[in-house]
């Protein structure tokens, strides 16, 4: 970490706080995968890491390299844009796949398909 010696202290503090915050959010999100009870609850947990978590780490990385190389380093924004566009798509696809599988099995805890009323399943 010798290269970081030229970094001003205020920047080092900001980078450190952002890194710890981002990693902490990712840890809480992944811990939620273990803690929450059903699949549909667990879908929510990783969103912590994929929104604010990776956002904090990306801002920390941008600040660090911009100050270290004395020029604007912005390529981290590409990962941020990529995450913003892909995370909702993957989670939606996954939730729909899970819903489809539960409906095929007539699992009573999920709502029936629109326009269909199950004879056995409970109405929610």
């Amino acid at each position: 970490m010798i290269h970081a010696a030229e970094l001003p202290v205020w920047a080092a503090v900001i980078v450190a706080v952002l890194l710890l915050l981002g990693a902490g959010l990712a840890l809480i999100g992944s811990f939620g995968l273990l803690r929450l009870r059903s699949f549909y609850e667990r879908v929510h947990a990783p969103t912590l890491g994929t929104t604010l978590g990776i956002g904090c780490v990306l801002v920390a990385s941008m600040l660090f390299f911009s100050l270290l190389q004395r020029r604007l380093v912005l390529h981290e924004i590409l990962i941020a844009v990529l995450m913003v566009m892909t995370t909702p798509v993957t989670l939606m696809l996954l939730a729909r796949a899970a819903l489809y599988r539960d409906r095929v099995e007539r699992n009573g805890s999920v709502p029936p398909p629109p326009g269909v009323r199950w004879e056995g399943g409970e109405e929610r």
Partner: peptide, 17 residues
């Protein structure tokens, strides 16, 4: 709307008819 709702933790857009 789907992206906004799914990107905020705690809500997931599941299906649209």
């Amino acid at each position: 709307l789907a992206c906004i709702l799914t990107a905020t933790p705690g809500t997931v857009w599941v299906e649209y008819d």
